[in-house]
Design a protein around this nucleic acid. Structure first.
Lengths: 210, 210, 210, 210
DNA sequence: AATGAATGAGTTTTCATTCAT
DNA sequence: AATGAATGAAAACTCATTCAT
C-alpha cells in the first residue's frame, strides 16, 4: 500500500470516527441540543478538527442520514432482483429491511425523517445536498421496482408505481415517528416492529388485486 | 356577565391573539428560527406579555398542536357516530378531514408531527403535557372507534383496533411529512391530497375482510 | 417632558454611554484587539445590550468616526462663512480645528483614518454607510468652501477646489498617522501639533498666488 | 560556490517565494482576512513551512513593508546625489518615485501605511522591528537630504529638514490612503497620480523661498 | 396587566501556530 | 527541510426569559 493510499485510508478512518461520535451525541440529544464540542469530546478530538472533515454541523448530521439511506439501498438491492420470489414476498423483505435498519440505529433514523424538513437543508453545500437527493432517490427507486414488478405481474393494483412507493416509504417513516412519539408521550414501550408488521400486512393486502 | 367572567373572556381573547400570531410566525419560519420577539410584534404585544399567557416558547408551540388536534377531534366527532353510513364510508370521511386539516394550515400540521419528538416535550409543564396527551388520545380514540365498528360489523380484518388506528394516524403523518420533504428536496409541487387519496384507498382495501 | 420624550432621552443616553466605553477600549486596543465583552464591561452592561443599540462591532466603531467627523464639521462651520477674515486666515483656523480634534481624541481620529479602508466598510448597514459618507462629505465641503473663496478672491492658485480640499485633508490624515507611527516606532514623543503647524505653513504658502 | 552558500541562496529563494505569495494574498484580502493557509497554497508550500522562514503572520507582513521601503530607498538613491539637477527638480523625481512605487503594488503600500499603527508592531521580533525602523529611517534620510540641499542652496524655506521630510512623507501616505478611501466610499476611480501631482506642486511651491 | 430594556449563557466557527513524522 | 493534521483559544452574536416600572 502506497503512502498516499494509507493517508487516504486514515482520512476515511477519521471521518468514520467523527461520524460515530456524532451518531451517539445526536441520538442522545437530538440535532439542536447536540453541541459540536460534545461531539468532539466523544471523538476524542478538538472541535477544530471536525471542521477539517465536515463543513458544518448540518453537513455532519446529513452525512449520517446519507449513510443510513445508503445502507437501506444496499440491503434492498440484495433481493429486489431475485427471480425466485414474487412481489408480495419482496414486500415482506422490504419490511424486514426497514425493521432491521430501525433496530440498527433508531435515533438516527428518526432524525433522518425529521430533518428532511424545512428548517434544515439550508446550510448544506450543493454537493452534499445532491448526494442526499441521490441516495434518497436510490432507496425510493428500489422500492418502486418492487411495486412495478407486482403491477406488471398482475399481482398488485394498477396504480402509478411511484405513488405506491411513496406510500410505502411514508408508511415506514410515519410508523417510526408515530411510535417513537407514543413512546415519549405515554411511556409506552417500543413496538415499532409489531406496528410495521401490521402496517405492511394491511398494505400488502391493500395492494393486491382482487 | 360578571366582571370575573369578562376578565376571563378577555384573557382567552388575548391567548387566541397570541396563538394566531405564533401560528403565522411558526408557519413561516419553523420552530427554531421563529423568535418570541417576532411573534410579539405580530401580535402587537411586547415579548414580556406572551409570558403572562404561555410558560415558554415550547408551550406556546404545543398549544398550537393541541388546537389542531382538538380541531381534528371535533371534525371527526361529527360523523363517527352516524348510523347511516358504514365504516368504509367513515374511513373516507376520515381522509377528508385529514385533507381539510392539512389544507387549513400545512406548516403547523408539519410542525405538530415534527415536534412530537425527542427534542421537544422536555420543557412542557405537566399540565400542558397532560393536555397534549389527552387531545392526542381523543383524536386517536375517534379513529379507533371507526375501526372498531368496522371490525364488529365484520367489515374489517380482525386486528387490534388500536393498532389499526395507529396505522391510520401514522400513514397520515407519514404522507404529510414525506410529501413535504419531497417538495423541499426536489422542488416537486404539493400533492398531499392525491397521495393521501391513494394511501387511503390502499388502506381501506387492506382493511377489508375478504 | 412627556414619557416618550424621556424614554427617547434615556435611549440616547445609553448610546452615548456605550460609545464612551467603546472609545476607551478601541483607543487602548485598536479595532481588532478590542472585544465586545470588554466594551460591555467598560460600559457596565452585558454584551447583549450593546447589540440593542448597535448592529455589530463595525457599526459601533463607525459611530465613533461619524461622531468625530460631525464635530469637525461643526467646528469648521463656526468660521467658514465669516466675512471679517480672509481665506489664508481661515486656513489657520482649519489647522487649529484639526489640532483641537486631534487633541480631543487622538486614537479615535487615528482609527478613523485607518478604518476608512478596504478591510472595513463591508459590514456596515446601508444607513450607517450613507451617514458616514454624508458626514465625510460635509467636512470636505466645508474645507472646499474655504479653498474656493481663496481662489475666487484671487488669493490662491487656480486649481480645482475639490482637489485642493483633498490635499488638505490628506495632509491632515497623513501627518496624524505618520507622527503616530513615528511615536510608536521610535518612541519619539508626540509632536503632531508642530508638524501640522509646519505642514500648514508650507501648504498655505504653496496655495498662494505669486 | 560552497555548499553552505548554495543552501543560503536556496533559503533566500524560498523566502522570496513566500513573500511573493503573501503579497498577492494580502493585496487581495487585506491583512486580517488573508489566511496563512491561503498564502501557503499560493506559494505551493505547506503552512508549517512558512513558519520556518517567518516567525509569524505579522512578521511576514512586515517583511513586505520592509521590502517596499527598501525599494523606495534604492530608487531615491539613484538621484539624490546627482549634481546636475537642483532640489526642486529632485522633489519632482521624489514624486515620480512615489507614483512608481504606488503603481507597482498599491495594496501593499496601503497596508504599509495602515499597519505602521498601534494594532501591529506588537508581535514583531526585536530584529524585524529594528530592520523596519532602519529601512524606514533610510527612506526618510534620503528625503531629508534632498530638503537639506534645497535649504543649503537657499532655494527652500529655512525649516528643520527632518520636519520637512516628515511632511513630504506624510503627504505621500495621506494622499495614498485618502484617495483609496474615497475610491472605496464613493466608487470614485483611482486618481492618486493626479492628486500626488497637485500635492507636490503645492508643496514645492510652499517650500520655495520667496 | 403590560411593558420592553436588559440579561448572559450558550454555540458555532475560524485560523494562527505547533509538532510528530 | 518540509509536511499538514491537529489544535484549542478566542469572539461575535443570538435570543429566550426576566423583572423593575
Amino acid at each position: 500500500m502506497g503512502i498516499h493510499e494509507r493517508k487516504q485510508r486514515e482520512k476515511e478512518q477519521r471521518r468514520k470516527q467523527i461520524m460515530e461520535a456524532a451518531r451517539k451525541v445526536f441520538s442522545a440529544k437530538g440535532f439542536n441540543r447536540a453541541t459540536m464540542e460534545e461531539i468532539a469530546g466523544e471523538a476524542e478530538l478538538s472541535p477544530g478538527t471536525i471542521y477539517l472533515y465536515f463543513k458544518n454541523k448540518e453537513e455532519l448530521h446529513t452525512s449520517l442520514s446519507i449513510d443510513i439511506l445508503e445502507y437501506i439501498s444496499v440491503q434492498m438491492k440484495k433481493f429486489i432482483n431475485r427471480h425466485d420470489i414474487n412481489a408480495e414476498q419482496k414486500m415482506h423483505l422490504l419490511k424486514d429491511t426497514f425493521i432491521d435498519v430501525y433496530e440498527y440505529d433508531p435515533m438516527v433514523l428518526i432524525n433522518l425523517f425529521h430533518l428532511q424538513s424545512g428548517e434544515t437543508l439550508t446550510n448544506l453545500s450543493a454537493e452534499v445536498l445532491e448526494e442526499l437527493k441521490q441516495t434518497s432517490a436510490d432507496a425510493l427507486s428500489a422500492i418502486t421496482s418492487v411495486v412495478t414488478e407486482g403491477i406488471e405481474r398482475g399481482l398488485f393494483v394498477e396504480k402509478h408505481p411511484v405513488a405506491l412507493a411513496d406510500i410505502i416509504w411514508a408508511t415506514y417513516s410515519g410508523v417510526v415517528l408515530w411510535v417513537d412519539s407514543k413512546r415519549l408521550l405515554n411511556n409506552e414501550k417500543d413496538f415499532v416492529k409489531q406496528t410495521l408488521d401490521t402496517a405492511f400486512e394491511i398494505m400488502v393486502n391493500g395492494f393486491k388485486r382482487k
